[in-house]
């Protein structure tokens, strides 16, 4: 397996985080004892990711499925609330897909994934923090002044709809098409695939990307 064959220099204060069962022998790492279960799992994921970089879809699906639990654990450690963990998982999976070429199979897959997951978790926490700063919570006001008594509510809704329409118009063609077909026209994936000539996988990915872009734009975070 490539992950066990050699290691590369890891930082100015090298190897402090190196798995205990590996030691450096000149520029090669040699297993000196039986690796733990977690190290074996890490090496397995490293091998799957290496295969995925070469285009192996089965290995890719396996490594991504195997990554979900680790991403959730990292996000939890960063202080992400339980109900937001899955948003971090989705964003991390997308980032992994986009930057999979940066993974070096000679190094730990878990360390690589954890760094990405931690960053996505911090992004989510910051984005929630900014949103909370902008929003004002007044439960008494909400209870005593229902929306129907608010004369400006209709105008605001119309403005929001206009903003959304404009934001959709600025999306790249593939993403716009996915939103129109699956979101606005409420077609099924199969119907949308037939109508656009794209496969369902591409439609799902485009929809997810479009929703992320729209969320960022409408919350002023782009």
């Amino acid at each position: 397996m490539p992950a066990t064959s050699s290691l590369t220099f890891d930082g100015p204060w090298v190897l402090l985080s190196r798995p205990s069962s590996w030691r450096l022998d000149s520029d090669k790492a040699v297993p000196t004892e039986i690796p733990s279960a977690s190290e074996q799992a890490d090496r397995q994921r490293a091998a799957w990711m290496a295969a995925a970089q070469a285009g192996d879809q089965r290995a890719y699906t396996r490594v991504l499925n195997d990554s979900v639990a680790l991403i959730r654990a990292v996000a939890r450690r960063q202080g992400v609330a339980v109900d937001a963990l899955d948003d971090v998982v989705q964003e991390t999976l997308f980032t992994v897909h986009r930057v999979r070429h940066t993974y070096d199979p000679l190094r730990s897959y878990d360390a690589w994934l954890s760094a990405i997951a931690a960053r996505r978790a911090i992004d989510l926490l910051r984005s929630h923090g900014r949103r909370e700063q902008r929003e004002v919570h007044d439960e008494f006001a909400l209870d005593t002044h229902a929306d129907r008594e608010d004369a400006s509510a209709g105008t605001e809704r119309a403005q929001d709809a206009l903003l959304l329409r404009k934001a959709i118009e600025t999306l790249p063609p593939g993403q716009r098409e996915a939103v129109e077909q699956l979101g606005l026209k409420e077609r099924s994936l199969a119907e949308a695939a037939q109508s656009t000539g794209r496969n369902t996988g591409a439609l799902k990915v485009n929809l997810h990307r479009a929703l992320k872009t729209l969320r960022d734009r409408l919350h002023g975070e782009s």
Partner: peptide, 8 residues
């Protein structure tokens, strides 16, 4: 999502 990413 994983299926979709795998497909592309």
């Amino acid at each position: 999502l994983i299926d979709a990413l795998g497909a592309e």
